[in-house]
Every structure is written in C-alpha cells, then in structure tokens.
Design a protein around this nucleic acid. Structure first.
Lengths: 341, 341
DNA sequence: ATGAAAGCGCTAACAC
DNA sequence: GTGTTAGCGCTTTCAT
C-alpha cells in the first residue's frame, strides 16, 4: 500500500496499460472512457494509492488552487472568526488556505506577503497595510481583496462600512441620553478616521461632546492601560466606546478595579461582537460586524474573481450590514432594568 | 516593472547574458561569482522583478517549504494562539503555513487533511483525530507531529501532560478545602480520559468526591447548557472544573444567571489560560498550558524533523510544564481575600 | 476514445 | 566560475 516512492501518473498508466494522457484525463474527469479502461484505471489508482502532485499540476496550469489570507492578529477573535468563515468556503471549493499572521507589524509586511503571493491564486489581506505594499499588491496581476474599508480607489474590498458601524453605536448612546462620550481609537488602523467621522456625524448633530483617546494597540491590555487616563480626570466621559471589543473589555476591567461601576459610573461599548463579549460582566454592548460571514463572503468573492476576469473590478455584492447588540454595559444609569442578554 | 507574463529564470539569464544554471546558483546563493556577473544578475533580477516559482522548484527538489497545521477550532483562543506561535517560527525559517480548521468534525477528516499532506513537508495535527486517520498519517512518509497527548505509541507529540494539568488543578481545589468537585469534560476529546485520571489520582487520595459531567462541545455555549444540570441538584458540587476555559466561562455565566454567586456558592476553574480568562468576573482560576509557546515548540520540532531523518523518532524536547494560575473564581468562600490578579 | 510528444520553470550533475 | 543537459510529474494540443 505504501511503497517507498509515491506513485506518479506514469505508474498508474503502466499498471492500467494505458497512456499517461488517458490517466490525466481520467483524474480530471475530462471525458468518458470505455468501461474496461475506466475500471482498470480505478483499481490501478486505488492499488498504488496514487494522488496528483499539486506542484506538477500547477506548473502547467498556472493555477495553485490555494488562497492566501493575511490577518493583523490571529489571536483577535474577530480575525479568527474571519478565518473560520474563509476556511469553510475554501474547503468547499477545493481550495487550500495559506495563512500569515502579521502580528500587527507595520514593517516588513511585503516580505511576509511575497511568498504568499507566489503560492496562491489570490490574496485576502487585512486593510491596515502600508500604501507602498498596497501598490505592489495591485500590480501583482492576481486577485486581491482587502478586509475592511478601502483607503484607495480601485481596490476590491469586503467588510462593514466603518462610518455606519460608528454611527450606529453613537446613535444608541445619544438615545440613552449621554452627553459626553469618549472614543478609544487606534490611530494606526485604516478604519480609525472613518469611525471618527461616523461618530461625529451623529454626535455633532445631537450636540454631544466627543473626547478622543488613542490606545497603544487594538488589544485588551491596551484597553486596560488607557482606562486611568480616560477616567481619572474631572471631565471624564459618561460613556466610552472602544475601537473593538478587546479594547472595551480591557477598559471595563481596569475601570472596575479603579472603583468605577459599569454602567452606572461609566458606560462602555465595543465593536465586533466577539464571542467573549457575551460572557464578561456586565455583558458588553457592541456592534456585530459578522466576522465569520465576512470571511465567507470574502472567500466566495475571491474565488469568483479567479478565472473570471470580468468580475475582478465589479463592486462587491450587497455588503454586510452591521447590527447593534444591546447588552448591559452601556445602559444609562436611570434606565437600567433587568434585561440581560 | 510589471510585464504581462512573470519573468522566468530564462529571462533573467538572457538579460544578464549568462546561463540559467548560473542564475539558479545565484538565487540559491550556492557559490561565489565574478563581480561583473554578480552585478549583472542583481540588476537583471531587479529589472524584471523576477522571483522564483515555488512550484517549479518544489518539483525538482521534492520539498515544498510549507507546513500544514490542522486545528479543531480556530475560534478557540487556545488554538488561535498555538497558530500564532507556529506562524512566528515558520516565518522565521522561511516556511509557509497551510491551515485547515477542522471545525470539531469527527468525520471526513482525512479528506480535509489529504490536500494538506500533498502540499507540505510536514503536518501538525490536533490529536483528536480518528484512529484510521492517524494510521494513514503515520504511513505518509512525512513528518507528523500531534498536538496534545498521544493515544498511540510511536507518534511524535507536543503538548502538556494532561494528567499533570488535571492534578495541578485538583491539588489546588483540595487545598482550598472543597470536598465535592465536579468535572465538566468532553468525552470525544483524546485528553479527557487522562484528565480524569489526573483528577482521580489527587482527589481519591484526598478522599474528595468527583462528579463527572459531559459537555456537548468544548465551547462556552456548551458550558452554559450544562450548568443547570450540574447545579440544580441536591448534591451539587462545591467546585466545578471546566475541561477548558471556554466551558468554564460559559458555565460561570449561566451559573450566575441561575442565581449562584461565584465563588461563594460554587467555585469554578478552567484549563488553558486563554487571554479572556483574566477579563471575566470573577477572574478565572485556570491552568496555563502556554498555547503560544506550544505552537512555537511544535513548529520548531517539525522543522528539525524535516531533512533530519534521525530526529524523526526522537522523543520531544524537555516538554512544557503547566502552570496553575490562581485568580478569584475558585477561592474557598471563607478564605476570600482582596487579592486580585 | 486513446496516445505521442511538447513543454511548464526549475535544480543538479556533470562538463569545461 | 560558468554552461549544457536531463529530467521532476503533469496537462494539453494534435494525431489517430
């Protein structure tokens, strides 16, 4: 069953008494065969445990049947879930997934992406990528889809509209009656400016003050670190929005150990709706960006772009809509009721 | 800069006025060259934007410089962190990472692994894999390392000793003075039996009762679901161990909405030390299994196995030791003090 | 329906 | 130090 060397198409051809061309056509189901040949082929393949060498195949076809996925931080549940969705549709379409975790690095990104580009038929990359790398990707002559908002014209993109995401949250907070709101952003992120715009759109119109802060990183640790700076000042915000759930959760934890009650003393909200946000106390109000569905969508999209030159420039399919998830962490003090999600 | 077709080694040879063999040797830095040739090569490569075709290379070398990683559930932070560590050392060694999320499936696993096996020089697979698939992997003539405990002899394995992990936690709970302890396991997992053994080792010796429960899945949702069954009975355990932090966190949340105070009414502990465990309330007592270091270790190990036939059967390096992380969720009622981590 | 032959881009002997 | 050449395993015309 398992010989020393792996069987090649030639071994199969010999065992079945046909030519290698016939074997090739058979395994690629490119035509029909006489019953006798078909049977001999089938058993020869089983006997030898033959399977196609993808490298050899890809040499002649020029296709790799693999897709690259580059994420900023695989430990962020948002990205892990994007990957889950992407993995699912890749597998269903007989594609393999090559992944690289950029680990939030802003430098050496192209070097990390280059091998991916060489080994795949298309790339899915997080949008927080240096401009020169985006240029390089664009000239790659290979489908590339960005995750999140586009910073540039002419690039294909899948993800929520950051302006809309932020507006949604701002709208809720205004409706709750808060009049001074803090936003803990992450300046290096591509979406940060859009988030701010979405926030201002709503808050300015409502006459609500917006205080801007910046986290060191889009992580819980950074959320913890920023909390004192935000809260230990006379004009502290009544409600604080974290640029993602991780930041919000870190912020909440540190706020509590600083002696603040949430949401009574300070309301907190996040963005993403990572699974954890349901399990912290109080449960975190957030905006669902449908990470897993995003992964499925982006993978579906890139697969359709491969081999379908026409769809490469088309605008994305009806894009995903963010959904406000109201939980306990951002209810106005005087309105708190016993409604737990 | 970006011509229609990508440049080949032949284009470079022509542009530099040398043979393709010279180009090949140059890009693989296999020897030194005359200054003039070196310079011409360098500029020709830059000019044409040439890069090696990995498929062509791998056809002749038989190597892919890629490693496959198969995890049970990439949305489980434990696995995401294993992947983070694995990614890091893969990149540092010029390997690419091919990932497949098995999504906790028990069937069709081989079909998901087959393409990975064909495209990589080695495989890292979660150990909760059907026996026949393990057999197949073993006959693959390719380095395979399992994550977690081995169920079989002769397979290379990286991960914590499950018996030890469980004993550690049991020891702490005994020391806290609990006399009736529940364990919410996951029967389908390879490590479950070992965990149980580790628990019994310690608890039996201490005369502490162990109540066994099973979760539907190793997830927070399953942890929630099982809570009522465990807690709404006259002989409910004083402390409950979740088979991982996800289960423990789900359990805690549901326990609280059932009206139990933690740890006063019921103590809870988990296993893994996922990042979230610090941020739930109360903070979760758990055992750190060093997920990220595990990922680094396993990747280091498999890279050394490739091309080093000798090390393929060696026993693993000094294995990782689990570490008890004491937080608030499992302190005995009468001993609770103000020590927060 | 089946086969012969020409490569895909590259590395590795082996010559020079 | 540099070039020639023979494949690696496969798909794909083009014959038959």
């Amino acid at each position: 069953m398992s010989s020393r060397k792996t069987a090649t198409i030639r071994d199969v051809a010999e065992a079945a008494g046909v030519s290698i061309a016939t074997v090739s056509k058979f395994i690629n189901r490119q035509q029909s065969f006489s019953a006798s040949v078909e049977e001999k082929l089938r058993s020869a393949i089983a006997e030898l445990g033959y399977s196609q060498n993808p490298a050899a195949r890809s040499m002649v076809t020029g296709k790799t049947t693999a897709i690259g996925l580059a994420v900023m931080d695989i430990a962020n549940p948002h990205y892990a879930n994007v990957m889950k969705g992407a993995n699912r549709v890749a597998l269903a379409n007989d594609y393999n997934l090559l992944v690289v975790d950029l680990e939030e690095k802003g430098t050496g990104v192209r070097e990390m992406l280059e091998p991916l580009a060489l080994r795949t038929d298309g790339l899915i990359v997080s949008s927080r990528i240096p401009a020169d790398v985006v240029d390089w990707l664009a000239g790659l002559n290979k489908p590339v889809v960005f995750l999140g908002q586009p910073e540039r014209q002419g690039v294909v993109c899948v993800g929520m509209d950051s302006v809309e995401v932020a507006s949604l949250l701002a709208g809720y907070l205004v409706q709750q009656g808060f009049t001074r709101i803090g936003y803990v952003g992450y300046g290096r992120a591509a979406w940060n400016a859009e988030r701010l715009r979405g926030l201002h759109d709503v808050l300015d119109a409502a006459g609500v003050e917006l205080m801007e802060f910046d986290a060191e990183a889009p992580t819980s640790e950074a959320g913890e670190q920023v909390a004192a700076r935000v809260l230990l000042r006379p004009d502290r915000p009544q409600a604080v929005i974290g640029c993602n759930d991780l930041v919000a959760i870190g912020f909440m934890t540190e706020a509590r150990s600083l002696g603040f009650k949430i949401p009574q003393d300070v309301a907190v909200a996040g963005i993403d709706n990572i699974p954890t946000s349901r399990y912290v106390s109080p449960s975190l109000t957030t905006v669902d960006v449908f990470s897993e569905a995003t992964g499925e969508t982006v993978m579906t999209r890139i697969i359709s772009m491969i081999g379908d030159e026409a769809s490469r420039k088309l605008s994305p399919p009806p894009s995903l809509k963010p959904l406000l998830v109201v939980r306990e962490s951002a209810k106005r003090q005087d309105r708190i009721a016993a409604t737990e999600v």
